[in-house]
């Protein structure tokens, strides 16, 4: 329609999401919002990773009736970024879970989630 390749659109979307997340992470003062912005940042970068694996007019790298073994090499998308994104999602989940655990501990310590209350590690 627009002549823009679909992977470029995905790239732009992913980078925009990453920028939104970065802006939110640096401006918000509430720890929960910072964590949410971190996940938005993460999601944007994952979109970018998936987008870089796209091949013009490619399809999912799963051999079935729609994609025979012979034409797989010419029609399948690059499976490596997709496999790496699974890793990225799992690690992102792990980081988010640990951050939430720390947020609970911080709230228990100061009864607030505002990052301004935690002055010990400020310089």
């Amino acid at each position: 329609m627009t002549g823009l390749p679909v992977s470029t659109i995905l790239l732009v979307t992913g980078f925009l999401l990453a920028l939104i997340g970065l802006w939110g992470m640096l401006t918000h003062r509430n720890i929960m919002r910072i964590i949410i912005c971190f996940t938005v940042f993460d999601t944007g970068l994952r979109l970018v990773m998936v987008a870089t694996g796209y091949i013009t007019a490619g399809t999912a790298p799963i051999i079935d009736r729609a994609l025979t073994t012979a034409e797989a090499a010419s029609r399948a998308i690059d499976p490596i970024p997709s496999a790496l994104v699974v890793t990225a999602i799992v690690i992102g989940f792990a980081v988010t879970a640990v951050m939430l655990g720390f947020a609970i501990r911080l709230y228990a310590a100061k009864k607030t989630l505002s990052i301004d209350a935690f002055t010990e590690s400020k310089w």
Partner: peptide, 15 residues
């Protein structure tokens, strides 16, 4: 960025 039109060598190997 230029959209790929063919698989990279490693990806071809895997596929």
């Amino acid at each position: 960025y230029v959209e790929l039109s063919a698989l990279r060598p490693l990806a071809t190997q895997y596929v």
